[in-house]
């Protein structure tokens, strides 16, 4: 048990997707036996209790003011810092998206507390708190040990943590109106248009080969890539057959890519292709031939017809909400 309560900061900006429930789940996984409090910061208190009231939190304070948006980094920092300056706490946990990270480090700097970024595991004992994160270009782990009564602000690496919180009895909810928020930041936010076929920098690549059987198959792959905010790739066979533009070719004579997710559809996985994609973080293979070498590289796979699977994927995946 930490000596003071643990707080989660839930940035509830309706203009953005958030990972607030994932953050609660992360904390529940890591702090078995500790009470968890949350401070929700939002343009109004409407709907907040409904969303988080039974999410397993003990106390929820809602900081509400109409101007709130997480793009106002300094203004949000100000509201949160004032709140925490008057509130005994041990750890303050944030999500790890860009906005939350920017606010978290500003709050830590304002409160003059330790800051630890991208924590993926927390262990609390009677005399210490150990936060684990990746270091040395993610090739090693770093274990940071704080005294159990130390204050620290952290962002949490929620890879693999879903929104399925352990629900509990109703939290004690209090609305704390922020009457005089600091001046809003002089900043503009604009959503970026989806980039088409920016293969080398795409986080998700949807790639097709002989198994797509023609240009129509690649139209389906393009739809899937668009839906995932990703980019279209292809094997040499598909490019040589004229089904798809040469700029999409991945492999020895094409581009080398290393996205977070590489979806290989109807690609057997010849070495000439795999040298261009084998460094991808997660490889998903779809192929009719269970003996295809691509399955040796895969993290996930479906043995089945590419076109059929892609059509099902398209109906299964909800389009990401552009923010």
């Amino acid at each position: 048990m930490t000596k003071q309560p643990i707080y989660l900061v839930l940035l509830a900006d309706p203009k953005f997707e958030d990972k607030n429930l994932n953050l609660i789940h992360f904390a529940q996984d890591n702090f078995d036996g500790n009470d968890l409090n949350a401070v929700v910061i939002a343009p109004s208190d409407q709907g907040i209790e409904e969303k988080y009231g039974t999410a397993g939190l003990k106390e929820i304070d809602i900081l509400a003011y109409a101007q709130f948006s997480k793009i106002n980094l300094a203004q949000t920092t100000n509201a949160l810092s004032e709140y925490f300056a008057g509130q005994a706490h041990s750890l303050i946990l944030f999500a790890n998206d860009k906005g939350a990270t920017s606010i978290a480090k500003r709050v830590a700097a304002e409160l003059k507390e330790n800051f630890i970024m991208q924590v993926n595991q927390l262990t609390v004992t009677t005399d210490s708190i150990v936060a684990q994160k990746k270091a040395e270009e993610a090739t090693m782990l770093q274990q940071v040990t704080l005294a159990s009564d130390a204050n620290a602000v952290m962002t949490c690496d929620m890879t693999g943590v879903n929104e399925q919180v352990v629900t509990g009895s109703a939290a004690k909810v209090a609305v704390k109106a922020v009457d005089n928020p600091a001046q809003a930041d002089q900043v503009d936010y604009s959503a970026l248009p989806l980039k088409k076929n920016d293969l080398e920098t795409a986080k998700i690549v949807v790639s097709g080969g002989r198994g797509m059987q023609g240009p129509e198959g690649f139209e389906l792959l393009q739809q899937l890539a668009d839906k995932l905010h990703g980019s279209l790739g292809a094997s040499r066979v598909a490019v040589n057959a004229g089904w798809v533009d040469k700029s999409t070719m991945v492999g020895q004579t094409g581009k080398v890519v290393a996205p977070d997710v590489y979806i290989a559809v109807g690609i057997s996985g010849a070495l000439q292709h795999t040298v261009g994609m084998d460094q991808s973080k997660c490889i998903i293979a779809i192929n009719t031939d269970p003996a295809a070498p691509i399955f040796k590289l895969a993290d996930y796979g479906i043995i089945g017809d590419g076109e059929t699977v892609v059509k099902q994927l398209l109906s299964e995946l909800s389009a990401p909400v552009p923010s």
């Binding site: 782990l141 770093q142 274990q143 895969a298 996930y300 796979g301 479906i302 043995i303 017809d305």
Partner: peptide, 18 residues
């Protein structure tokens, strides 16, 4: 703070059969 090696995890593919 101290560094540690990441425990090696063998790649275990999850394959479904349509």
């Amino acid at each position: 703070s101290r560094l540690a090696f990441i425990p090696e995890q063998k790649k275990q593919a999850v394959i479904y059969k349509l």
